[in-house]
Amino acid sequence: MRVEYINPFVESAYNVLKEVLSVEIVRGELYLKSTSMPVLGVAAIIGLAGDVEGRVLFDMSKATAIKIASAMLQSMEMEPIEELNDMGKATITELANMITGQAVTKLHNLGFKFDLTPPAIFTGDNMEIADTGVEALIVPMDLPFGKIEINVAIRERN
Protein backbone atom coordinates (compact mmCIF):
# COMPACT_ATOMS: atom_id res chain seq x y z
CA MET A 1 0.00 0.00 0.00
CA ARG A 2 1.33 3.42 -0.89
CA VAL A 3 2.26 5.61 2.06
CA GLU A 4 0.74 8.66 0.34
CA TYR A 5 -2.68 7.17 0.98
CA ILE A 6 -2.42 7.17 4.71
CA ASN A 7 -1.64 10.76 5.67
CA PRO A 8 -4.92 12.24 4.45
CA PHE A 9 -6.72 9.74 6.69
CA VAL A 10 -4.61 10.68 9.69
CA GLU A 11 -5.18 14.41 9.13
CA SER A 12 -8.90 14.09 8.41
CA ALA A 13 -9.50 11.87 11.41
CA TYR A 14 -7.71 14.33 13.64
CA ASN A 15 -9.53 17.37 12.21
CA VAL A 16 -13.01 15.89 12.12
CA LEU A 17 -12.80 14.33 15.57
CA LYS A 18 -11.56 17.58 17.02
CA GLU A 19 -14.19 19.68 15.29
CA VAL A 20 -17.12 17.39 15.99
CA LEU A 21 -16.26 16.35 19.55
CA SER A 22 -14.26 19.36 20.79
CA VAL A 23 -11.86 17.21 22.80
CA GLU A 24 -8.12 16.59 22.90
CA ILE A 25 -6.97 13.87 20.55
CA VAL A 26 -3.67 12.05 20.69
CA ARG A 27 -2.41 10.30 17.58
CA GLY A 28 -0.83 6.96 18.24
CA GLU A 29 1.93 5.29 16.24
CA LEU A 30 0.92 3.84 12.90
CA TYR A 31 1.32 0.12 12.51
CA LEU A 32 0.73 -2.59 9.94
CA LYS A 33 -1.56 -5.55 10.18
CA SER A 34 -1.46 -8.26 7.60
CA THR A 35 -3.94 -10.88 8.70
CA SER A 36 -7.65 -10.84 9.33
CA MET A 37 -8.26 -9.29 12.65
CA PRO A 38 -10.66 -9.45 15.52
CA VAL A 39 -12.14 -6.04 16.10
CA LEU A 40 -12.84 -4.15 19.29
CA GLY A 41 -16.63 -4.49 19.21
CA VAL A 42 -18.08 -1.84 16.92
CA ALA A 43 -16.82 -1.43 13.38
CA ALA A 44 -18.03 1.10 10.84
CA ILE A 45 -16.81 0.26 7.36
CA ILE A 46 -16.67 2.30 4.16
CA GLY A 47 -15.68 0.92 0.79
CA LEU A 48 -13.45 2.70 -1.71
CA ALA A 49 -13.74 2.25 -5.46
CA GLY A 50 -12.27 3.80 -8.56
CA ASP A 51 -8.56 3.83 -9.39
CA VAL A 52 -8.15 1.80 -6.24
CA GLU A 53 -10.14 -0.68 -4.26
CA GLY A 54 -10.19 -1.08 -0.56
CA ARG A 55 -11.90 -0.14 2.59
CA VAL A 56 -11.58 1.92 5.71
CA LEU A 57 -12.64 0.46 9.01
CA PHE A 58 -13.32 2.44 12.17
CA ASP A 59 -12.95 0.14 15.09
CA MET A 60 -13.78 0.88 18.73
CA SER A 61 -15.27 -0.72 21.82
CA LYS A 62 -18.98 -0.50 22.38
CA ALA A 63 -18.47 1.70 25.46
CA THR A 64 -16.39 4.13 23.40
CA ALA A 65 -18.96 4.16 20.60
CA ILE A 66 -21.72 5.01 23.08
CA LYS A 67 -19.67 7.84 24.59
CA ILE A 68 -18.73 9.30 21.22
CA ALA A 69 -22.26 9.08 19.83
CA SER A 70 -23.63 10.66 23.01
CA ALA A 71 -21.17 13.55 22.78
CA MET A 72 -22.12 14.16 19.14
CA LEU A 73 -25.82 14.01 19.90
CA GLN A 74 -25.49 16.32 22.90
CA SER A 75 -23.56 18.85 20.86
CA MET A 76 -26.78 19.14 18.84
CA GLU A 77 -28.91 19.36 21.95
CA MET A 78 -30.17 15.84 21.46
CA GLU A 79 -30.52 13.13 24.10
CA PRO A 80 -27.40 11.04 24.82
CA ILE A 81 -27.76 7.28 24.35
CA GLU A 82 -27.29 4.49 26.87
CA GLU A 83 -27.25 1.65 24.39
CA LEU A 84 -25.98 1.46 20.86
CA ASN A 85 -29.42 1.90 19.29
CA ASP A 86 -30.21 2.90 15.69
CA MET A 87 -29.47 6.56 16.34
CA GLY A 88 -26.17 5.63 17.99
CA LYS A 89 -25.18 3.49 15.02
CA ALA A 90 -26.19 6.23 12.59
CA THR A 91 -24.06 8.68 14.54
CA ILE A 92 -20.94 6.49 14.44
CA THR A 93 -21.38 5.70 10.73
CA GLU A 94 -21.76 9.40 9.99
CA LEU A 95 -18.54 10.12 11.86
CA ALA A 96 -16.81 7.49 9.71
CA ASN A 97 -18.42 9.00 6.60
CA MET A 98 -17.19 12.52 7.42
CA ILE A 99 -13.62 11.40 8.08
CA THR A 100 -13.44 9.23 4.97
CA GLY A 101 -15.14 11.90 2.84
CA GLN A 102 -12.61 14.50 3.87
CA ALA A 103 -9.70 12.10 3.28
CA VAL A 104 -10.99 11.11 -0.16
CA THR A 105 -11.35 14.80 -1.02
CA LYS A 106 -7.73 15.43 -0.03
CA LEU A 107 -6.55 12.43 -2.05
CA HIS A 108 -8.59 13.59 -5.01
CA ASN A 109 -6.82 16.93 -4.93
CA LEU A 110 -3.52 15.01 -5.00
CA GLY A 111 -4.64 13.22 -8.16
CA PHE A 112 -5.96 9.93 -6.78
CA LYS A 113 -9.41 9.39 -8.23
CA PHE A 114 -11.76 7.30 -6.23
CA ASP A 115 -15.10 7.35 -4.52
CA LEU A 116 -16.67 6.00 -1.42
CA THR A 117 -19.62 3.73 -0.86
CA PRO A 118 -22.28 4.24 1.83
CA PRO A 119 -21.08 3.14 5.26
CA ALA A 120 -22.16 0.03 7.11
CA ILE A 121 -21.75 -0.83 10.77
CA PHE A 122 -21.10 -4.14 12.51
CA THR A 123 -21.36 -4.85 16.19
CA GLY A 124 -20.56 -7.97 18.08
CA ASP A 125 -18.18 -9.19 20.70
CA ASN A 126 -16.38 -11.78 18.70
CA MET A 127 -16.33 -10.40 15.26
CA GLU A 128 -13.67 -10.84 12.62
CA ILE A 129 -13.49 -8.81 9.47
CA ALA A 130 -12.46 -10.99 6.56
CA ASP A 131 -8.95 -10.62 5.27
CA THR A 132 -8.85 -8.48 2.14
CA GLY A 133 -5.49 -9.90 1.14
CA VAL A 134 -4.06 -6.44 1.50
CA GLU A 135 -1.96 -5.16 4.32
CA ALA A 136 -3.83 -2.72 6.45
CA LEU A 137 -2.32 0.34 8.07
CA ILE A 138 -3.72 1.18 11.46
CA VAL A 139 -4.01 4.72 12.73
CA PRO A 140 -4.81 4.71 16.47
CA MET A 141 -6.48 7.80 17.91
CA ASP A 142 -6.76 8.26 21.65
CA LEU A 143 -9.71 10.26 22.90
CA PRO A 144 -10.99 10.91 26.41
CA PHE A 145 -13.81 8.50 25.42
CA GLY A 146 -11.41 5.68 24.56
CA LYS A 147 -9.52 4.53 21.52
CA ILE A 148 -10.54 4.50 17.86
CA GLU A 149 -8.47 2.47 15.44
CA ILE A 150 -8.72 3.56 11.84
CA ASN A 151 -7.77 0.65 9.65
CA VAL A 152 -7.03 1.52 6.03
CA ALA A 153 -6.51 -1.11 3.33
CA ILE A 154 -6.10 0.13 -0.23
CA ARG A 155 -4.99 -1.74 -3.32
CA GLU A 156 -4.33 -0.24 -6.71
CA ARG A 157 -6.22 -1.61 -9.67
CA ASN A 158 -4.32 -2.47 -12.78
Binding site: M72, L73, M76, E77, M78, A90, T93, E94, P118
Partner: peptide
Protein backbone atom coordinates in the same frame (compact mmCIF):
# COMPACT_ATOMS: atom_id res chain seq x y z
CA UNK B 1 -29.83 11.78 3.38
CA UNK B 2 -29.15 8.12 4.15
CA UNK B 3 -28.04 8.95 7.68
CA UNK B 4 -30.66 9.16 10.40
CA UNK B 5 -28.20 11.29 12.35
CA UNK B 6 -27.76 13.88 9.60
CA UNK B 7 -31.48 13.99 8.83
CA UNK B 8 -32.13 14.79 12.45
CA UNK B 9 -29.27 17.28 12.62
CA UNK B 10 -30.41 19.25 9.57
CA UNK B 11 -34.04 19.02 10.66
CA UNK B 12 -33.16 20.39 14.08
Amino acid sequence: DDSLFVTKQIGQ
